[in-house]
Design a protein around this nucleic acid. Structure first.
Length: 412
DNA sequence: TGTCCACTGGAACGTACGGCTT
DNA sequence: AAGCCGTACGTTCCAGTGGACA
C-alpha cells in the first residue's frame, strides 16, 4: 500500500500548503453560473420561443446548433430552469427533462429516461423500444402537463441509429389528449440536416438557434468572471488568463477547454506550492491534459483494438496501408495464440481509432495498385510504449520485431 | 479508353449475454 | 421456464471506386 509517511507529506501540503482555489467546482463543466456572458441574445431568443408555455400553450420546437463549449447546454438549462420557476409562480404546469443522448447511449434509454421523469419506472432492459415509448406516452398524458424535452448531443444518436425515434417523438402530440410536448434538440454537428428525414427536420426546427464559437476576448471575459469565484484574490496572473483564452480560442472557441485549462493550471500551481498561477503553469496544464486524454483512451481500448494499434506502432516509420497492418496484426495474434478478426472488421476498428484521434487514416488510391487507407500514428510512440508495455497479456510484444514476410510494409 | 488492383464501406445476419414479462 | 428484448461484437457478402498502367 506504499509508505504512509509519503502520504502524510502529500496530504499535509494539500491541507496546510498555499491555497489558490476558493471553489474549484465553479470551473467544472456542469457548473451553471448566474451570468452567461456573451450569450444574452441567445438567452433572449430562447426565452421568447418558450414563453408561450406560461399561458398553457405549446411552444415551437427548437433546434440549437453550435460546437462544443459554446454554451448551448448552459443556455438551455439556464432558460428552462428559470422558466420552470416562473411557471410555478403563474400556476402553469410545465416540466422539462434534459437528456444527454450520447451519455444515455440508446433510444431505449432515452425513452426510459423520459418515462422516469413523468413518473413511470422502466426496467434497465427487457422491453421493446415500442413498449417503452407507449408507457412514456401514457404516463405523460395522464400527468396533464406541458413537457419540454431537451435532447442534448442528439446528433450522436441519430448518426448511430437513424432518426426513427425522432420521428415518433415529433408526432407524439397527435396522440396526446391532456398533455403537450415541445422538443429542444441540441447538436454539435451543423450538418445534422443531412442525416435527418426532411419531415422530421422541418418539424424539429420550427425555430433555429446558432451558437457561434467564442473569440479570445469573449473567452477571456468568461474566464475572468469564473476566476473571481474560483480563485483567491490576486492569485491568477493576467498573462495566465490571456493564454488560457488564446489557447482555447485557437481550438474553435471552446469555453469548456478554457475552463479545464484554468482549473488544471491552478492544480499544477498548487502542487508546486506556487503563490500565483503563471503562463508556465498553463503550458504545463495543456501538456498534462493532452497526456491524460491519450493515456485514458489507450487504457480503455479493447484487446483487439490495442493489437491493431500496436500493429500500426510497429509499422509507423511511415504510413502503412490496411493490408500491411493486417499482416502485422496477424503475426501478433499468432504470437499470442489468439483468434484473429477479419480484415473488414479491422477496417472498422481503424476508423474508430481515427475518430479518437489516435491514428490518422486517409483513403487513397494508388491507381493500378488498388485503393486503400494510409494510416499513421497521431500520438507519440512513447505513450504507446508506456501504456502497452506494462500490460501483462501482450506487453512483451512492444519489442516484437515483425517478420514482414510480404515485404511491402514500411515503404512509403 | 478500358482494365484491374486492393481495398472501402454498407447491409444483412449470427452469436452471446443480461434482464425483463408472462 | 419460455419467450422476448436491446446491446455489443463480430462475420459474410458484395457493389463500388480512384487512378496508374497497358
Amino acid at each position: 500500500m506504499g509508505n504512509p509517511s509519503i502520504l502524510d507529506d502529500v496530504f499535509e501540503s494539500f491541507v496546510n500548503g498555499v491555497r489558490l482555489f476558493k471553489d474549484r467546482e465553479v470551473l467544472r463543466h456542469d457548473y451553471l453560473p448566474e451570468k452567461l456572458p456573451h450569450r444574452e441574445d441567445q438567452i433572449r431568443l430562447l426565452g421568447e420561443t418558450v414563453a408561450p408555455v406560461l399561458r398553457d400553450a405549446r411552444c415551437s420546437n427548437i433546434f440549437i446548433y453550435g460546437k462544443t463549449g459554446t454554451g448551448k447546454t448552459a443556455v438551455a438549462k439556464y432558460v428552462l430552469s428559470y422558466l420552470e420557476a416562473k411557471a410555478k409562480e403563474y400556476g402553469a404546469s410545465v416540466r422539462f427533462c434534459y437528456v444527454n443522448c450520447r451519455m444515455t447511449g440508446s433510444e431505449y434509454r432515452v425513452f426510459a429516461n423520459l418515462s422516469q421523469s413523468v413518473g413511470m419506472s422502466i426496467p434497465f432492459t427487457g422491453l421493446s423500444v415500442g413498449e417503452v415509448f407507449d408507457r412514456f406516452r401514457a404516463g405523460l398524458d395522464s400527468s396533464r402537463i406541458i413537457f419540454i424535452i431537451v435532447l442534448d448531443e442528439v446528433d450522436a444518436l441519430i448518426k448511430d441509429r437513424g432518426d426513427s425515434f425522432m420521428y415518433e417523438l415529433t408526432r407524439i402530440n397527435e396522440t396526446l389528449n391532456r398533455s403537450k410536448v415541445s422538443i429542444i434538440g441540441i447538436s454539435n454537428d451543423l450538418r445534422l440536416k443531412e442525416f435527418l428525414d426532411p419531415r422530421v427536420f422541418s418539424s424539429l426546427s420550427e425555430e433555429e438557434l446558432v451558437f457561434r464559437p467564442y473569440d479570445a476576448g469573449e473567452l477571456r471575459n468568461i474566464l475572468f468572471e469564473r476566476s473571481k469565484l474560483s480563485f483567491q484574490e490576486g492569485v491568477l496572473s493576467e498573462a495566465a488568463l490571456s493564454i488560457c483564452a488564446a489557447l482555447a480560442a485557437a481550438e474553435h472557441g471552446d469555453a469548456r477547454r478554457a475552463l479545464d485549462l484554468l482549473r488544471v493550471a491552478g492544480e499544477v500551481a498548487e502542487r508546486q506550492s506556487a503563490k500565483s498561477i503563471t503562463e508556465e503553469h498553463v503550458r504545463q496544464a495543456e501538456k498534462h491534459i493532452e497526456h491524460n486524454r491519450v493515456v485514458e483512451a489507450l487504457k480503455n481500448l479493447t484487446l483487439q483494438t490495442k493489437l491493431v494499434l500496436l500493429s500500426v506502432y510497429h509499422l509507423s516509420k511511415s504510413s502503412a496501408t490496411t493490408g500491411e497492418i493486417y499482416d502485422i496484426y496477424n503475426e501478433l495474434c499468432g504470437e499470442l495464440g489468439m483468434g484473429l478478426l477479419t480484415q473488414r472488421r479491422l477496417g472498422t476498428l481503424i476508423n474508430e481509432l481515427d475518430a479518437m484521434g489516435l491514428v490518422n487514416a486517409k483513403v487513397v488510391s494508388m491507381g493500378r495498385y488498388g485503393r486503400t487507407k494510409k494510416i499513421r500514428l497521431e500520438i507519440s510512440r512513447s505513450h504507446i510504449k508506456d501504456v502497452f508495455g506494462s500490460d501483462t497479456r501482450f506487453g512483451r510484444l512492444i519489442d516484437y520485431t515483425p517478420k514482414l514476410s510480404k515485404g511491402s510494409a514500411g515503404k512509403c
